[in-house]
Simulated scan of single mutants.
Amino acid sequence: MAPHATVKRAIGLMSGTSMDGIDLAMLDTDGDGNVMRGGSSFAPYDAAFRKQLEQALGTAKAIRERHERPGDLAELETELTERHALAVEAFLAREGLAASNIDVVGFHGQTVLHRPLEGLTVQLGDGARLAERLGIDVVYDLRANDMELGGQGAPLVPAYHRALAAGLPAEWAGETPVVFVNIGGISNITYIGANGDLRAFDSGPGNTLIDQWMSRHAGIPYDSGGAIASEGRVLSGLANRYLSSPFFTARERVSLDRNDFQLPDDDEAGLEDGARTLAFVTAAAIAKAQAHLPEKPKLWILTGGGRHNQQVVEDLTVALRHTGQVIKAEEAGLNGDSMEAEAWAWLAVRSLRGLPITYPGTTGVKKPATGGVLAQAKATAQD
């Protein structure tokens, strides 16, 4: 590793399992410990496009090889890529920047199928088209190499979490072990030990069940602030059914697909009780992750959209009250909404340098592995 690696300006793009829109963040970074966070933005998907993406989950079940695009997936991929291009252009205009000011874009795309036991992961998103469209180099398909080398292909953000943990403000510096909890559609955790030991895995359903429940029973995309959940009660039988899933009792951690946990039947709960129970399950699933950690954490840092659900946060704070302090990312000077997008910017630069992005303790890959495909804007434009 070069002692003074070149700092690059990168934009990261993330569309997660919640399928609510595109998170965008800019970093100046060397893909290692030098991280200077810049602006961020969010481009929401309209309801019709969200429905298309949800329907794509069903279509994608027919995929047997990750480059296949059955049904309308090829057309949807083109539209998704265009929406990402528009999000970048709007951000650059807002920041007063030109494409030439950006060295690379880290492009996650939209996961429509993730079957780690089959070594298969599919993210819609055409990296070459995005590079041509923007005139900026794009690094994409960051999960595939890990899976080809025996990893789960997820989570990919932990290496960035470790870089952030090394730069926490004085109030929190030295509070190790520290755990980052990303409550997205699926929740995942990153454990960072005092010696930099890195462990990470999916902990269970995050927002996805709550969001689907709200959409089905209230016609709204999510439970804002956990307000509806706060009016309900935990249905213990329903909660225990989720928490007794083989996923939680298995010794080995596996990465999850959005469809691995199903909604309750409509007659099992009313709107409020369903929302309350699913919020409890989200928190309890995270708390169960402690059984797979080498030491008891001193600090839990909450990131992702789920940290806005106050009922989830309250349940988690109660569940972890004997193990460490629970804070939101902003209390540690971080941005809990843009962190995953920041990670994709950081990972893109790291990929360019050929540095590892996954580790045995994060994805189960046999040895530290780099990843990603580079689409060069100039070469693409000449093709």
Rank of each mutant, 00 (worst) to 15 (best):
G304K: 03
Q310Y: 00
A375D: 14
D337V: 15
V365S: 00
P356F: 06
R321F: 08
L316H: 10
V365L: 03
V365M: 00
R353V: 01
E331F: 07
V312Q: 04
A348E: 01
K366H: 12
T370L: 03
N309M: 10
A369D: 03
D337A: 15
E314V: 02
V349A: 09
W344Q: 12
A329D: 03
V349G: 14
E340V: 07
A375L: 10
T370P: 04
L355G: 11
L355R: 14
A348S: 11
L374V: 06
D337T: 14
L302F: 10
Y359A: 12
Q376W: 14
Q325Y: 09
T370H: 09
Q325A: 13
N335D: 14
L374Q: 06
I301K: 09
A319F: 12
T358F: 06
I357V: 13
A341K: 07
S338P: 12
P360H: 01
N335G: 07
W346C: 00
T380E: 11
R321Y: 09
G304M: 08
L347H: 00
M339H: 10
G372Y: 06
R350K: 11
T358S: 13
P356A: 07
W300E: 01
N309V: 12
T303P: 12
A377S: 15
P356V: 06
E330P: 06
T362Q: 03
H322V: 14
K378P: 00
L352K: 06
L355Y: 14
